[in-house]
């Protein structure tokens, strides 16, 4: 598996995949896509990077432990639904902040934050599983 070519292109491929996953995540509200699928793509990117360049370098690259990222995602997703508490609304009532930056409509919303949480959870957890298994493979 670890051919030179693969090792050379893997970082670029992974970076591209991560970028794509963010794109999929963000467009999810309007087109097919979303946090899950984005997260899965990003996790695959980590897995490929890990296979190519070793798990250690992946761990260095993402700084935090993937399970920590995953936990943070869950925390964030749960918090996103709690904002409505301050508006006397039920849990997970969506809050929208829409403004225009030179004709482009930018919408910040709690569902988006929630979806990012989902994304992080999936990246973290699935990435962690993949890395752990790959690490096992190496020893």
């Amino acid at each position: 598996m670890r051919t030179i070519i693969f090792r050379t292109i893997a970082p670029y491929l992974s970076a591209l995949m991560v970028l794509f996953s963010v794109f999929v995540l963000l467009r999810g509200h309007n087109e097919p896509g979303g946090g899950f699928i984005g997260g899965l793509i990003a996790a695959s990117a980590l897995a490929i990077y890990g296979i190519a360049c070793g798990v250690a370098s992946v761990r260095r690259a993402i700084v935090f432990h993937p399970m920590g990222v995953s936990g943070f995602g869950l925390f964030m997703a749960a918090l996103a639904g709690m904002l409505s508490f301050f508006k006397d609304q039920a849990f997970m009532t969506s809050q929208w902040l829409i403004f225009h930056v030179s004709d482009v409509e930018v919408a910040l919303s709690t569902p988006l934050v929630f979806d990012i949480g989902v994304y992080l959870v999936v990246v973290g957890a699935i990435g962690s599983i993949a890395l752990a298994l790959e690490e096992r493979e190496a020893d």
Binding site: M67, G68, S70, G71, L74, F75, A78, L79, F91
Partner: peptide, 15 residues
């Protein structure tokens, strides 16, 4: 549900 979920997430981050 929320208390345990936030608590669980926090404990996980500080694993």
């Amino acid at each position: 549900s929320l208390i345990t979920m936030l608590g669980g997430a926090l404990c996980l981050m500080l694993r």
